[in-house]
Design a protein around this nucleic acid. Sequence first.
DNA 1: AAAATTATTTAAGTTTGTCTAAATAATAAT
DNA 2: ATTATTATTTAGACAAACTTAAATAATTTT
Lengths: 219, 219
Amino acid sequence: MNLSVAEENYIKAIYKLQEGEQAVTTNALAYELETKPASVTDMAKKLKEKKLISYEKYQGITLSPEGRKTALQVVRRHRLWECFLVDKLSFSWEEVHELAEELEHVRSEKLISRLSEFLGNPVIDPHGDPIPDANGRMAKPRPQTSLDQANARRLVVTAVSDQSSALLAFLNAKSIKLGTQLEIIAHYEFDNSIEIKVKHQPAITISEQVAKNIMVRPL
Amino acid sequence: MNLSVAEENYIKAIYKLQEGEQAVTTNALAYELETKPASVTDMAKKLKEKKLISYEKYQGITLSPEGRKTALQVVRRHRLWECFLVDKLSFSWEEVHELAEELEHVRSEKLISRLSEFLGNPVIDPHGDPIPDANGRMAKPRPQTSLDQANARRLVVTAVSDQSSALLAFLNAKSIKLGTQLEIIAHYEFDNSIEIKVKHQPAITISEQVAKNIMVRPL
DNA sequence: AAAATTATTTAAGTTTGTCTAAATAATAAT
DNA sequence: ATTATTATTTAGACAAACTTAAATAATTTT
């Protein structure tokens, strides 16, 4: 099946939002793709026609088996390019998403298998997310949570969900990046701020707002 | 200026056809881009509006200085990706064109400068064509001619202009590839066929049709 | 359970890049 | 210098992916 860039982006977004099983709503998808609900409805009809999703009016969207397979191919391409950009071109992890977003739409089995080989067939990308293999199989995603909901004491930073440059600059200033190990010192209940410590750095206090956008997993 | 993929392809094709100075005709451009003359006229109006070309009804098209700059950026991206595919992913020179055709449209100064650096800032691509630098400067193109028009005796293969798999298979069978050194043994005037010899191979006779599609330069 | 709110869909219109068919201009042939 | 041919442009339409505004369905609130 030959999909347009827009169609691939819808499939990928549905995959991301579906997260397990429940149907994806029109609104959620519109928000994710920065488009309007009416556009989502239009596209849903088209993707249903192509048997990539199941969709009934007012009932939300779920990927069909073919849809899931397609999604995994796009995810594989995206994550392999991220590896390339970080490992070979020395980009930092927060820069690569947008570029990979474009590179992922170059559809060529051969290109992707050669790229994977060139990178040493990596199984996780620079954000710590697993890379599907050519058959769509991958390790189960790490149990990430946002920092404000973490219950373990010692944690590793796995991603930053908000890509705004303000947040990235803040994290940069505090030497917090992918793979940084943190220790939670205290929760302050009156404003839900969190005091954390990075090795060799003074302890710092982080607002709930910031904590919500830092993804971590237990060490 | 933010150009669409289609616009970039037009600019690149105009650059390719302009070859020196003379204006590009509507028909030639339509043929090159595998589209219809009417579509070319439409696009010409748009590109003129954006000041990338000069164009007057029935007078053909030439790139403006900005247009040329844009074209060189696209050519730079294309040729760097070709280097990457051949040098790092072990593609053969005849496979890379289509892939580079897609990769070239990922517009990021930083990506391209990093890629160039990663490749060791190459100045010629796998087809022997010069790669423009970040400022659009490049070595002057090699004096290629098609094999049927070559006047020197000893030649190097620099490109194959027809990308059909039939021709590529033929060349493969005869061990002729980019960089192969040939010697012209004889021209047969009755059908313009050419007898050539590759080192360590028996001499072979090539039709005019084939010779027209093999680009060479004097050794 | 009715009213209010929110979510979703439909209808109609836009833009980009294409197309076909018809009209016009430029060039070549007699 | 007409006529014929070829090249180019215009006009009108189409598909993809989007938009806004209005209509309808689903969900929540009271």
